[in-house]
Design a binder for these strands. Sequence first.
DNA 1: CGAATAAGGTAAGTAATACTTACTCACAAT
DNA 2: ATTGTGAGTAAGTATTACTTACCTTATTCG
Lengths: 197, 197
Amino acid sequence: MKHKGKTNPPGRIKIMKAFSLLMAEKDFHSITTAEIARTAQVTEGLIYKYFKDKKDLLYQVLNDHFFEFQTHIENRIANEKTCVEKLKVIIFSSLESYAANRIFSKILLLEVRNSLDFFESGAYEMVREYARTILDIIEKGIETGELKPETDPHILRKVILGAIEHACLGEIIFGRPLDIDGVSTGIANIVFNGAKR
Amino acid sequence: MKHKGKTNPPGRIKIMKAFSLLMAEKDFHSITTAEIARTAQVTEGLIYKYFKDKKDLLYQVLNDHFFEFQTHIENRIANEKTCVEKLKVIIFSSLESYAANRIFSKILLLEVRNSLDFFESGAYEMVREYARTILDIIEKGIETGELKPETDPHILRKVILGAIEHACLGEIIFGRPLDIDGVSTGIANIVFNGAKR
DNA sequence: CGAATAAGGTAAGTAATACTTACTCACAAT
DNA sequence: ATTGTGAGTAAGTATTACTTACCTTATTCG
């Protein structure tokens, strides 16, 4: 090789930064390539040197954000011992991360899902890994008797993830504030103890 | 007025049908106006006689589907007496409707949310009404003592709606089959009785 | 009746958009 | 010296969503 292995040229970084910035204000489709280039102070053509297309740019930005999200959560989980505590941490930390990083949330919960090629991207691989972690925790919880034996692990995961995501939508879409503590303990209460008297 | 109040000309219907058909195969953004016109056998210009823009077409198609969805569910709820039974019917019927009507589901769960002007559309008004109905049921359930008094109605609603929506995503995105009975009783079990032993 | 008017529909535009192609320039390694 | 490559540019192009001006039919009312 000629050049050193150093990669991630300034142009690429500038483009991703500019795109993130624009995502904070508007939705994916109303961001134009011209706008990205102008904000990043590069030419439009350069975008296509580093990214296959506009969507690929979206996925790669998501990838970066998701990496932080995942490592943060995994560190926290490691500190907990019981299954229920681990799941509570997942609920709390997810809400916290979504609330703290609106661009990440917007991309993951609103923008990427409607296009099939996301599900072949690297970002989606991380989503699956994260989902797998949750499933493992649940299965272990059933084994150890912490959770009811008749619990369907996949469904419990659906309920937890669905509740988390749904809880964040208001904050993401309308910019409404989110009571992380209240909502996370509320979700945990219902999921673990049930709402019926 | 000169013409009678009769409205809904054949062109308009053909356009909506064609659009629905295309939505079954691909996502909103990869459907072009040229394609819609060709499939509907009308000229491109006619689309803009009946719809403000492409998004407006999306919202109006959603509106039609949502109307069916809502009346169907409301009829079913009326047959149930207890709060818990009503909520179970909501869970089951929602899953059933989503599974039976993929175009509706795709539009509502994946396509409209990322654009702010959806939330000013008539279709969104129906969503709010539906959400209000659920909240009313929950609040009544707490009053009558069917549900635990410490339950937060808004959070219980989030958990239920989130679980339903999350459960349908696989089916919608990947076309995976959905075990409506199993999933709906599974969700109800967790939400009402809790997963913890 | 007759003519004004509006509804249903068309044809031919237009500006803007995502993406391409062909080209510099700098510089590191042979 | 020269060769090859990474970083970046400038000037396209086809396609897209949306407009404008027009045509045709048919109803309604003076």
